[in-house]
Design a protein around this nucleic acid. Structure first.
Length: 955
RNA sequence: GCAGGGGUGGCAGAGCUUGGCCAAAUGCGACGGGCUUAGGACCCGUUCCCUUUAGAGGGUGCGAGAGUUCAAAUCUCUCCCCCUGCACCA
């Protein structure tokens, strides 16, 4: 049995001694491979390992291809989690302490974690140990943490640049807000982790006919303004007159309170609902004067507490009016005007639940009534059902609706909605407010209802047109893997707009323009890969953080000014400055960035934007590589499921190479990998097979090459070519299926076929070991040395394939031989049932190889799909009778014929002759190989190209 | 709702760009056989249904429906469903 830990430690020590991962600029082409740094509040689990080992595989592969590849590593600690964790430890939170104990954190360490800095120290060390145990080839001299002072200096410089460029803006932003805590509320701060979703909603001003006050009607569908019959308020709640930005409005008391967090609201006085009900309001578009009526469903804490009534298209409005009318409320005359129709001609409309033609047939001209009927309810239905009808009509009219009236007659409703909203707002007849659109109210953990507050904020304006355009035009130059991710990246980079960039709490870099706040923890982690290129030079020369003035970064990263003057300003030695600059320029010209799929929509977009904003073009991102997750025994791993496997522990149990290999090459980048015990034992036994194969070399000798040896050489060289093609496209699974799984089955097949040529097997194993090195570095090293090599395999070059060793004849012939075995056994079983053969035991199998001319004849048939054309073709076969006999057998499946790979009949015959004894053993018969033209067998003419005819002769 | 990605055999997962070697690679599982003291190791075969005494034929089939085509898992349209993101969360 292989002792994987022993092997791993042995080679890790050898690599460290040889400093194989400590890279400095040289004459080779550079590549800087970086992976998104991990957060330091927990140990890493085997899910993280996939990203880091994918990056490691890529780094090792490119290194073997002659590049100077640097793979550094750092850690992320900014933001609130570490702070929150130390707080929980201070308050002796049982859950967190239990968690830490599960990660084998000793009690005394847990106690020290009351200090957040200790958490960072502890886990960053754990993570480094884990990465080393996994054999990830990192240049550890360059390690840093995002809370280090040097890091902060860089981020301050970055934000100075963004400000200079005009990309930093002060503005307002709606957030979920708790009036009790007086703070912003995210998903983690709410009861049951409900996510507060903030929507904007349009408020249309209906002026009071008799005063200067206004009824602000909140609506999702401003385009229905053409069908408004009245205004609704809820007479059972309190209303006030409030001054909003200097104008007077009637709003519910609750709404006035909520809106005061968004707008400048001053409550003037309370007003009785009955008074409001006596008023008339003016539709700002149609100028119609409409009454104010009591609406049972109007929620005083939603929007403004005032809504406009559109009975023809809103089931609630319809129901309220019908009920009022039925209750004997004095109703003015009103018309339920249908202003939106479903396009009948459009095939889409057929899918609507309330079909236009059905409505017509039933003589219903009120869509909301039609939708009530669809649900088999009427105006007196439960609110739940009315809600359902509302959703249905909203959805279907938004999708297929067309405006029937107004300026935008004939336009799709969804387009008209935006247009009308914009027009109303421009005329001052409407404004927008923010609301929480969750169906249920959201509560803060403290118990208070969450509301929307508009807060003052610094933003990075990713919506800046010039900036966006630069990104848009550069994006196609970035290589993205997996390729289908490009679409997501493009749409996300179009969509990103204002991004709030400072927070009141957390660890990290102080926001330079408001030192009481810190920089938001994704915004501080966009250009940090540059730091890897020179930070070890700062460390080794004792440069102090306070020496890192903006001039330093201007010089090192942008090439501004000169070393002498920067040295004067900062006190840093000119040689050190020059070295930093050279290092940055060398490494950053070619980068590859790796991460899990979760970072596409945030980190990658900000990463690209910030590089484009700050650096000259040669520093812009070159390559982005994203991997999916890891499942453990069929289940998604997540903290909430509690089934994460810490990787220090996993390496101990499963072996670093085994884990790496399964995670990284077990599936392509875009699919989740399955880590399971069965996959593990399969790898273990296959590795054992390879090591055993090396041992067996001792009993082999070199000999003249036979067909099966040519076959092995050919397979090896095609394999090298195929693997390189796949790896260059990051098709890791394709590549390693070829390198590993296929190689093993080929070696087995080779042995099965009696192959035992020392030269051939040696070369095969040597090159397989080389190609395994990026994926299973420790095992590859072991294999490499077992073969008698004395160099380190991880420093070797990727093998070259030999075009002339790739033999179509050999590979095809072997496939044919394999398939022929099947044909023979079928033929034997069928012929043994023929009555004249009953009782006979001895058999002679004749393998009849088709004449050479049949191959071009067949391929011409496949190409032309015409029998006559082939028969009349010159130079294929002079015996037209034979040719037509051959061609006409394909008449039925002519269309399905595809060209075959030609194998010379001579080679095939020779290969079969060499395989004859082996075949005889397999099928328990005497075997003869003969050419079709020489054969006297009645079945001879049935030989097909690449498919010999089989004649079983019983005696 | 918006944006992006998907839906393939018992399962996982290729194929879809460039329609036809596709009843659909590969792996796992299951079944039968071999090798073995034994086996979770290895080797061979079978694994949608029907017919077939020579390498075959027919049917059904790739979320649902419609269309284009001599021909559709693959192209077009519609619908349904799933995953991810939607920003104070790293």
């Amino acid at each position: 049995m292989i002792n994987h830990r022993e092997i791993e430690k042995k080679w890790q020590a050898a690599w460290e001694a040889a400093k194989v991962y400590e890279m400095e600029p040289d004459e080779r082409k550079p590549l800087l491979v970086t992976a998104a740094f991990p957060y330091v509040n927990t140990p890493l689990h085997i899910g993280h390992l996939r990203t880091y080992c994918t990056a490691d595989l890529y780094a090792r592969y490119m290194r073997m291809n002659g590049m100077n590849v640097l793979f550094p590593f750092a850690l992320h600690a900014s933001g609130t989690p570490v702070l929150a964790m130390s707080k929980r430890i201070r308050s002796k939170d049982k859950e967190i302490i239990e968690n830490l104990k599960n990660f084998n954190v000793p009690d005394e360490e847990i106690a020290r974690m009351e200090d957040p800095l200790y958490i960072i120290k502890f886990f960053s060390n754990r993570i480094e140990e884990g990465m080393k145990a996994a054999g990830v080839g990192v240049d550890w001299r360059r390690k840093f943490v995002s809370t280090d002072p040097i890091f902060s200096k860089m981020v301050e410089w970055q934000f100075g640049k963004l400000k200079e460029l005009g990309y930093l803006e002060k503005g307002v932003h709606p957030v979920g807000w708790c009036t009790n805590d007086n703070g912003a509320v995210g998903q983690h701060d709410t009861l049951h982790d409900a996510h507060p979703t903030i929507d904007t909603i349009t408020v249309i001003n209906f002026k009071d006919q008799d005063s200067d006050a206004t009824f602000p009607c909140a609506t999702y569908r401003p385009e229905t303004i053409y069908a408004v019959t009245n205004v609704f308020i809820n007479q059972n709640h309190r209303y006030v007159i409030a001054e909003i930005s200097g104008k007077r409005f009637y709003v519910s008391k609750d709404a006035a309170e909520a809106l005061s967090l968004q707008l400048d609201v001053k409550v003037i006085s309370e007003v009785q609902p009955s008074e409001l009900l006596s008023k008339k309001a003016i539709n700002p578009v149609t100028k119609e004067v409409v009454p104010v009526l009591p609406g049972f469903f109007v929620k005083p804490d939603f929007g403004t507490g005032v809504v406009m009534s559109v009975p023809s298209h809103a089931p609630f409005d319809y129901a309220a009016l019908e009920r009022l009318s039925a209750s004997g409320y004095p109703m003015p005359k009103m018309e339920y005007r249908k202003i939106i129709g479903l396009d009948k001609k459009d095939a889409q409309a057929k899918s609507a639940t309330a079909k236009p033609e059905d409505q017509e047939q039933a003589g219903i001209d009120v869509p909301s009534l039609a939708y009530l009927k669809v649900l088999d309810i009427d105006a007196n239905a439960d609110e739940d059902l009315l809600e359902e009808a509302t959703k249905l009509i909203y959805r279907e009219e938004s999708r297929w609706g067309v405006m029937l009236v107004g300026e935008h007659k004939g336009m799709e409703e969804s387009k008209a909605r935006e247009l009308i909203k914009k027009e109303l707002q421009e005329r001052g007849d409407a404004f927008s407010i923010y609301i929480l659109s969750n169906p249920e109210p959201i509560y803060c953990r403290c118990g208070y209802r969450v509301v929307v507050k508009v807060v003052d904020q610094w933003f990075i304006n990713y919506g800046n047109a010039n900036w966006k355009e630069s990104v848009r035009s550069y994006l196609p130059s970035i290589l993205v893997y997996p390729k289908k991710l490009r679409a997501a990246l493009e749409s996300a980079s179009e969509w990103i707009d204002l991004r709030a960039t400072e927070r009141a709490q957390g660890l990290g870099t102080k926001f330079p323009f408001d030192k009481s706040h810190i920089i938001e923890s994704l915004s501080d982690s966009t250009i940090y890969p540059t730091l890897y290129t020179y930070i070890h030079i700062l460390y080794s020369n004792g440069v102090k953080p306070e020496q890192l003035l903006p001039q330093f970064f201007d010089f090192v990263l942008l090439g501004l000014s000169d070393a002498e003057s920067v040295s004067k300003a900062t006190g840093i030695d000119t040689l050190v400055l020059k070295k930093c600059r050279e290092s940055a320029q060398y490494w950053y010209q070619n980068t590859s960035r790796h991460s899990g799929a979760d970072l596409i929509y945030n980190h990658y977009i900000m990463y690209i934007y910030n590089h484009v904003a700050i650096f000259p073009k040669d520093f812009w991102p070159k390559k982005i590589i994203v991997n999916a997750m890891v499942n453990y025994e069929g289940e998604k791993m997540s903290k909430s499921l509690g089934n994460t496997v810490p990787f220090n522990e996993a390496i101990e149990r499963f072996g670093a190479d085994h884990l790496r290999f399964i995670e990284v090459t077990g599936s392509e980048l875009d699919t989740n990998t399955e880590f399971s015990q069965s996959a593990l034992s399969s790898i273990i036994s296959k590795n054992q097979f390879l090591l055993d194969a090396v041992l067996k070399l001792e009993s082999m000798e070199s000999a003249e090459l036979a067909h099966i040896d040519y076959w092995l050489y050919s397979r090896l060289n095609s394999k090298i070519r195929a693997a390189k093609e796949a790896l260059d496209e990051l098709l890791l699974r394709v590549a390693y299926t070829e390198i590993y799984y296929n190689s093993i089955s080929e070696l087995k097949w080779y042995a099965e076929r009696g192959g035992a040529n020392l030269l051939a097997v040696r070369e095969f194993l040597d090159k397989v070991a080389l190609m395994l090195a990026p994926a299973m570095p420790h095992f590859a090293e072991e294999l490499w040395h077992a073969m008698g090599n004395t160099t380190l395999v991880v420093k070797e070059q990727w093998p070259q394939f030999n075009e002339k060793d790739i033999s179509q004849d050999a590979e095809e012939a072997e496939k044919i031989i394999k398939a022929t075995i099947d044909d023979i056994s079928k033929a034997v079983s069928i012929t043994s049932n023929i009555s004249s053969n009953k009782g006979k035991k001895e058999k002679l199998v004749k393998i009849i190889i088709a004449d050479e001319w049949k191959t071009p004849a067949y391929n011409l048939l496949a190409e032309k799909k015409s029998i006559s054309e082939v028969i009349n073709a010159q130079g294929i076969c002079d015996d037209k009778e034979k040719l037509s006999g051959f061609a006409s057998q394909f008449s039925k499946r002519l269309m399905a014929l595809e060209p075959i790979i030609p194998v010379s009949a001579a080679y095939l015959t020779n290969a079969f002759n060499q395989a004859k004894d082996w075949i005889a053993g397999k099928v328990d018969a005497r075997v003869e190989v003969e050419a079709e033209s020489q054969s006297k067998s009645a079945r001879a003419s049935r030989a097909l190209p690449n498919r010999p005819s089989i004649d079983v002769v019983w005696s």
